[in-house]
Amino acid sequence: MRPATAVITAIVALFPYYRTLSAQQSPSHLFQDQTPLTLRLEGDLKGLFHDRGEKRTAHPARLRYASAADTGKIDVKLRTRGIFRLKQCAFPPIRIDLPAHKVDDTPFAGQDKLKLATHCLSARLYERNLLREYALYRAFNALTDSSFRVRLAHVTYIDSARTDTTIRYGFLIESDAGLAHRLGAEVYESNNVHDLLTDPAYMTLVAMFEYFIGNSDWSVWARHNIAILRRTQPPQLLAVPYDFDFSGAVNAPYATPPPQVPIHTVRERYYRGYCQPDTILHSVLARFRAAKDSIYAAVRAVPDLPEGDLKGLLNYFDEFYDAIENRGLVQREFVRGCRSAPQ
């Protein structure tokens, strides 16, 4: 271990990074307010949900919204999206394409394309999964502003082709372009980005968060559930995580660990971060300790999260916090257990 003074110096130097990285840009109003939206999507949803090929098309729909005293309607285009959930869910995730220059006086001002996370299947268990995943996005927001913002919504889906109506929770996710703008960055399109080419402090924070929620379903190199952003001042690449439904914290019925990870269930945690100096590791652990109350408060604030689900999430988080106070476990999991740089 490095001397304690070196660790403290690094913590002081790096601590502001997690909260001030995005101070340059003000966030969209849509994601500043955490009051759930009321949305109604009406269109040929049967046709939309059957459109799951590689060349998916846009489907016209009408979006009605209510946010506080603001109500209105917008003609939009819908596309199915996703990978696993696109194949397995009766209600797959949706991308909402908003019309340019027609949303200025709506809650969607400044938005272009929005992801809508849906409930997957009709059983209420899957809506609970969605609320738990939403809670994880909010937990990461509590750790760092360099994270995808989300907005919960009561969504009524009206299928005009079948005169069928479904009402469930969903949540909107900030677009890659919107996140990049807020961070004063740009979406980085180049392939084959290795973890070690990204900002080491932020990358370690991401790897630790994925461990915290029990998620092994991500890869920087493969751009799997990771968005790559590039900042010029200071020059750095950021690998920002999303899609947490395969995590142990959500514990969805369909979730299994990736075959290359030596665990048996998603409830088992496995650290996939690369080895970093003790100064970076301990600054990240310090950030988790400092943000604990904010993380727990964010989870407790999720509307209609059943008491049993809330207790289960917080107990799962407690296991992490107990572990990082155990020097032996920290050595085993994050020092001896970290990934070595390729030779």
Rank of each mutant, 00 (worst) to 15 (best):
F108P: 03
I8L: 10
Q343I: 10
H154A: 10
Y242K: 12
D293H: 13
F148I: 06
T5P: 08
P253V: 05
Q25I: 11
V103L: 03
A185K: 03
L116N: 03
A180D: 00
Y271K: 06
S67L: 09
K115M: 05
H29A: 10
R289F: 11
Q88L: 15
Y242T: 03
S247H: 04
Q25R: 12
R336L: 12
V250M: 01
L48T: 01
G82T: 00
T265D: 02
D243W: 06
G312S: 14
D105N: 14
R40K: 11
A255H: 02
I8Q: 13
H154F: 10
L86E: 04
G337C: 03
T163D: 11
A252V: 02
E319D: 13
R85P: 03
P241F: 07
R138L: 03
T35C: 06
S160H: 02
V103D: 05
R300D: 12
Q111N: 08
Q25K: 11
T57V: 15
L45R: 08
S22Y: 11
E319V: 11
E127D: 07
P93H: 09
L196P: 02
L98V: 06
T232R: 15
A207L: 06
L21G: 06
V12L: 10
F31Q: 03
I280S: 01
F317P: 01
T165E: 09
P3H: 14
I74D: 00
D318S: 13
H119L: 08
R269W: 00
P93C: 07
P200F: 05
A90V: 13
W218P: 04
Q25P: 04
A66K: 10
I228G: 01
F209Y: 11
F171R: 00
